[in-house]
Design a binder for these strands. Structure first.
Lengths: 340, 340
DNA sequence: GGAGGATATGTGAGCGTTAACAACGGGGTA
DNA sequence: TACCCCGTTGTTAACGCTCACATATCCTCC
């Protein structure tokens, strides 16, 4: 007699017995094979329902060699950018029938990314998206197991993987040009952490426009994305004589700068104009509402899945692709014509 | 002759052959079994390294009946609260040796949560954390497959699953009492979406304190967590004669309200005091810096894993547990004694 | 009316791992 | 010397599913 107290969940064979068919027929029903008589299908479905049967995807994965799971490696998903991107990835993946296995890195370094990729590979994910926009993540992408497709978000220019990114240079140009058009003599810059690839792009675009217009190019102030670092930079900038315009590398730091100026009695935009970057949902309600450059993180996420799926279909004869999502300038109340 | 162009990744048997041992010995090395001679272990390790062998976790999971993967069902991970909680979950899970498979729901309804739980169960996750703080998520938790442990974050009081939550009532009491202590006659409230369980708790705590002090209890204004809804509520509140204090159910809406007051020339905190909820990283840099109630989302995430792991260890003889994370009042510049 | 092609179902093997048990060799003890 | 035990290794059988193939059943057409 079998010990009924330690009953395992039903398997395909149980369903088969109950429906009076072979396990293979059950499999066919589950996989929507065309050649199953309607009456048989109904009987199988009934048995499945009655037994509360659930297919064991692990066993399935073992034989098909596909887990229908994608891996995502990301850095600090507490930040709005990564969080939104990952959200876009997850939605797109699920609507394509894939699960998402997440690894959030708390510190970013080559070894960490390499480990994460290794774990994911062991898990048998069918593809991987790496949202690790720091330069130090790039080397790890180079020696990823070749048999598994990888897409990088904001990844370096290492030609070995597909990349989805926002055109940071263009975004920075829009911001800077807007300020020059307003009559500002030059534009100061509060940058992000130097290791981030996006930071470079934003500096490049900003510097380009200034150089093309023959304006002085001030030394960028360092920041770390946090409002506090923006606040500190703001405190320093307020002391710069003749300053009238600042381009800040993200909205949180712009908020900090706004706060610093408010405390020092510097009026925005009357005395200083400020442009941010990202367009987080809060920016519209800052004091004053922030002029900024919108990044469509959702689109970035969706595109990374799009590229990944294409790559998975194509298999070996895949050539790496690149997709650039355009940023959009959003004018609000933190910028104004320079006061003459 | 074997087709060398379609070479599969090496398996345990390949390693075994190369090292001159049986595949079982390779398995023993991989699983740190004590009874393997040091010299043998070294030979196996060398073979593994040489072949670039990676263990197939899918096959392993099939026989052990454990995937070492936990499922997380969450709602809109774009929001700071859920994002931080999920981040805490992921960190805690990984440091306990588990992977995290994510499902982000874009709309929350019983069927959606039920489906997500079903998919996750099919995937063979060892446990599930549900971060779906809406009332409509609760029914789905009732009929979750009994053989898989579940922890709910901010879940209802349905005694069937373990729950981790922040003491919303207490948080709201702290906020309201602070305002009364400042001399305000009463406190208005901008609430969150009515379906959210937390919203109830905050209203309850706020109402309690007002009632205990014998103060009038104004009708709460509805919001949806977004800055915009806070802005709209702020516009309406500014028109209320004699209003001097508002308790807002989250920081984003408080930002919106701040914006509305600024536009209408109502000075904060001189004319109106505002308290928020959450303490997002930006709050400290609002204009003025926001007095608020901090929720430690990271702790919520860590505790949910803690409870889940305990439950997984205990197995059948597990009685559902409850953990409450205390909120903390954070005084800043958006509140002041009432102007007499 | 029988060949032949579709349609419907069953059978056996194998995916890569771990669990259970068997086998082998060397000490220590009686 | 014979015994047993323990540390070390090998052998075999699952785990629950899909794939490839074999078989049975039905209809159609000449």
């Amino acid at each position: 007699m079998s010990p009924s107290h330690e009953r395992r969940p039903p398997v395909m064979a149980d369903v088969a017995t109950k429906a009076g068919v072979s396990h293979q027929t059950v499999s066919r029903v589950l996989n929507d094979h065309p050649n199953v008589r309607a009456e048989t299908r109904a009987r199988v479905l009934a048995a499945i329902h009655e037994l509360g049967y659930r297919r064991n995807m692990v066993a399935r994965a073992l034989v098909t060699r596909h887990t229908r799971t994608l891996g995502v490696v990301s850095f600090d998903t507490t930040l709005y950018g990564p969080a939104s991107t990952v959200y876009g990835i997850e939605q797109a993946a699920r609507s394509a029938g894939y699960f998402v296995s997440m690894v959030s890195l708390k510190t970013i370094d080559t070894a960490g990314v390499r480990d994460a990729l290794g774990y994911l590979a062991e898990q048998g994910v069918d593809g991987i998206v790496v949202v690790a926009p720091q330069r130090s993540a790039a080397p790890a992408l180079a020696d990823v197991p070749t048999d598994i497709p990888v897409v990088a978000v904001e990844g370096g220019h290492s030609g070995d993987v597909s990349v989805v990114s926002v055109d940071q240079v263009h975004g920075a140009r829009l911001a800077t040009r807007h300020l020059l058009d307003l009559g500002h003599e030059t534009v100061w810059h509060i940058g992000g952490p130097p290791d981030w690839l996006e930071v470079e792009g934003r500096i490049e675009g900003w510097r380009d426009v200034l150089a093309a217009a023959g304006r002085p190019i001030p030394e960028p102030l360092p920041g770390d994305w946090s409002p506090r670092s923006g606040y500190q930079a703001g405190l320093r900038l307020a002391a710069v004589p003749g300053i009238t315009a600042v381009f800040v590398a993200n909205d949180q730091m712009a908020l900090g700068a706004l706060r610093a100026f408010a405390e020092l009695g510097v009026r925005v935009p009357e005395q200083i104009s400020i442009v941010g970057f990202d367009d987080i949902p809060e920016s519209e309600f800052f004091t004053p509402p922030l002029t900024t450059v919108r990044q469509d993180f959702g689109a970035v996420g969706r595109w990374s899945i799009e590229l990944l799926l294409r790559q998975m279909e194509a298999g070996a004869e895949w050539s790496h692709e690149r997709h650039v999502v355009p940023p959009r300038f959003v004018a609000r109340a933190s910028t104004a014509p320079v006061h003459t």
